[in-house]
Amino acid sequence: MGRRNEPALEPELPIVDPHHHLFVRPGWRYMLDDFLADTGTGHNIVGTVLVEANSMYRDSGPVEMRPVGEVEFANGVAATCASGYCGKTRVAAGIVGNADLRLGSRVEAVLDALLRAGGDRLRGIRYITAWDADTSLLNPAYPVPPGLLGDNTFREGFALLGPFGLSFDALVLHPQLDDVANLAGAFPDTKIALNHVGRLVGVGAYAGRLSEQFPRWAASIKALAAHENVYVKVGGLGQAVNGLGFEKLAEPPSSETVANAMRPYVETCIEAFGAQRCMFESNFPPDKEGFSYSVYWNACKLLTRGAGGTEKTDLFARTATRFYRLNGIGNAG
């Protein structure tokens, strides 16, 4: 289904998109040309962070080393864009790879290989730990047991991120937010980026319960914000799993519609974490299910109409630049 596009509001505002993917999957391809078509719709996207998507893995060798192939691919994309060949957007200026932290201390060799493959662009690791008693909500590509963030062997692997200079991207479901807080408290020197405002769930066992669940989510967000090593990616609300219903509309939503639906979650996060620890993210292409790239960024701009210049710069670029150490990306820093 086609997505609505709109003229960009504040088209000169520098944006660093800290969360998107490139992949080839059965029946679904989203590669550099597709992403550049989205970033080329009027907003000033100066740089991006490419996050692992379980794609482009090596097809042989030790299983734990196969994710190195995705970082090799991402670094090639980054080099292409750094040449200026693809225009102003420095795609994959930062890279978040995958490593199985359940290996415990044995993950050290994987982290070393990922860092070499990343060519000084690897900034973090994401290992998806989303779990719920409602198994219909779980992604079979990422099978995890309950309570993984508290598992001793997992934490043994997690403990190596800090010494390697790597952050952790946390993808959980919103009922697991207290587990993220516990992890952050145990490792105060390791930076954590909470993905998608904590992965709001509004389907399955949570269908029709968004307003009921909001106070619990908000309380967990506020408790998590007490840990200064945690930052939050503000976005990831465009999919059916979130329960906001964009995909059910007769016509693709306008930026006003998207902004109004996102407002309670955006405002709660900014109030709890402050703009210096919040970064707007596109989460494309998954969020393309709900709205277009241009509409998403317009919605974010509508939501920050009353923000001061420093706050706006943090939300759209500087927090991401600082968190992922993206030196030299336009004037975003």
Rank of each mutant, 00 (worst) to 15 (best):
G208H: 05
E64T: 00
I329S: 02
L115M: 12
Q213N: 15
A79I: 00
I15V: 15
D120G: 04
Q239N: 07
V16H: 05
G165W: 14
S83C: 00
F168M: 11
N229D: 09
R209I: 06
R318K: 14
Y57S: 02
V96E: 08
R58P: 01
E12I: 01
F164T: 13
P285A: 09
G208Y: 04
A320S: 14
F246M: 10
S105G: 03
G274N: 06
G162Q: 15
A82F: 00
A317P: 01
C81E: 05
Y296L: 15
N298G: 03
A159W: 11
Y231T: 01
I221H: 07
V232H: 10
G61D: 02
A181S: 15
I270N: 05
D151A: 07
H196D: 04
H174T: 12
G330Q: 09
E271Y: 05
T190C: 11
E72D: 11
Q276V: 00
W28A: 13
L101Y: 04
R66C: 00
S255V: 09
R3C: 02
L22W: 10
A205K: 13
G306A: 12
V51Y: 11
G124S: 06
S167N: 14
A223F: 04
A207N: 04
P285Q: 10
V110D: 09
Q213F: 09
A317C: 13
R102E: 12
S282A: 13
F168V: 10
E256P: 01
F164C: 14
E271Q: 14
T257D: 03
V230S: 02
A272C: 05
V110G: 05
E289H: 11
V258R: 01
S105F: 01
L103E: 05
N195S: 10
R325T: 10
L161V: 09
W217A: 02
L101T: 04
D17C: 11
P140E: 11
P286T: 09
T310L: 15
V230K: 00
K288Y: 08
V96Q: 03
Y127H: 15
P145E: 14
E256N: 05
D179A: 15
G69Y: 05
M65I: 08
C300R: 07
A299V: 13
Y324L: 07
G306W: 12
S60L: 00
R318H: 11
N229I: 14
A117I: 03
F154G: 01
A181K: 04
N98C: 14
D314T: 00
S292I: 08
T80V: 02
S292V: 08
A299G: 13
